[in-house]
Write a protein that binds this DNA or RNA. Structure first.
Lengths: 198, 198
DNA sequence: CAGATAATCTGAACATTGTATAGATTCACA
DNA sequence: TGTGAATCTATACAATGTTCAGATTATCTG
């Protein structure tokens, strides 16, 4: 009888699962992963606290879903940063590589709470990330550095793990206050030395 | 009247502050930093839940105290690992350097929950760690590599941040399942390449 | 189109948590 | 020895994760 704005009735939400995930992201962003409350998430969405149990087994399952989404979005940010640098020169290849690392670090320092949720042991990644976009982008960038002659094939060997470890470690140590923020460019230079990049 | 085994009465604990910290460490070790309960800590020590508020402002303060202790102990482990390698040769200097990294990684994989508490944003380090033992050991090890001629002075520049970032990042990514465990030696080799070590 | 069945959400309840406050117990010192 | 300070307990309260019975709506069957 009463006209409704929503697509569906107000009793059935329609897309509660992703609404809960988005609300959880917003709350973690504000208050940190350890202060996330299922009841606050439900209240933000406008639903009863019990409703989430139809989509997630428990609170940890919701957190894991958030982690999966955040990991995808981080990879999207890196892809976006790469795509902003055009050209086939050695210079642009190097810039793409650096843009990836800078995007990773920038996300860590602007969203430390999301970073902590993703990498702090709160969620168990269901997807084995070996063939994830994040790995692929890094691998392709290293391949490009080889093909344009910036690094050698032998130096490229095991480059992924060194690069990701150093960028991730610096980001983590900096947002937790163990390392000053200006150390990140130094780490980036050290990475390039490790790759024999000139 | 009744003979007592304890040094003090059973009402006054005697050294409640450190007992609470040790009990908290044991519980975090088992169940993770996010599932630590003040009440469980108190119960383990055999004390009322309110008693801890005479030594710690709140739960976060107890966690921070735990973090400070853990950081010190990690540095102790590294010092211990270094001290097991004797000699003044290039070889022993290199071994000491590697022993430090290996000790760090070993602690991370054997005590992932303690590692998460220390580096996962749960505690706010009160002590500025710039002059901490962990920094000093790393700095001295790098100096030694220079003095025995294993790395150059220019490569040593900013070596601390690269080394700590890569070792910490690899440890973190491995215990969270983002990276296979066997990647750590590769990261160590990459670090040594970055330092120009031969 | 009507009725049954399944999907979705609510309400109330329970145990557990962090924390505040008032009071009990014990220590240390005059 | 007794008085004040330090230390711990008891109780209480609001908030949290989770369960379960039932209410509401969607969807499918005839």
């Amino acid at each position: 009888m009463v006209p409704r704005m929503a697509v569906v009735s107000s009793y059935h939400h329609g897309d509660l699962e992703s609404a809960l995930v988005e609300a959880a992201i917003a709350l973690v962003r504000k208050y940190g992963p350890d202060h996330l409350s299922l009841r606050a998430v439900s209240a933000d969405v406008g639903v009863s606290p019990s409703a989430s149990y139809h989509y997630f087994q428990d609170k940890d399952a919701l957190i894991s879903a958030v982690g999966t989404i955040l990991f995808d979005r981080l990879a999207d940010l890196q892809e976006q940063a790469i795509s902003k640098v055009s050209g086939n020169s050695m210079r642009s290849a190097k810039e793409r590589f650096q843009a990836m690392g800078n995007a990773y670090f920038k996300w860590a320092v602007t969203e430390p709470n999301l970073y902590r949720l993703l990498f702090g042991g709160f969620c168990e990644m269901q997807e084995v990330p070996q063939d994830h976009k994040a790995w692929r982008l890094l691998s392709e960038s290293l391949d490009e550095l080889v093909s344009v002659g910036l690094i050698s094939k032998s130096a490229r060997q095991d480059g992924e793990v060194l690069v990701w470890s150093a960028v991730h470690g610096a980001s983590s140590l900096i947002i937790e206050g163990f390392m000053p923020r200006q150390s990140f460019p130094e780490v980036l230079r050290g990475i390039q030395r490790s790759l024999g990049m000139k």
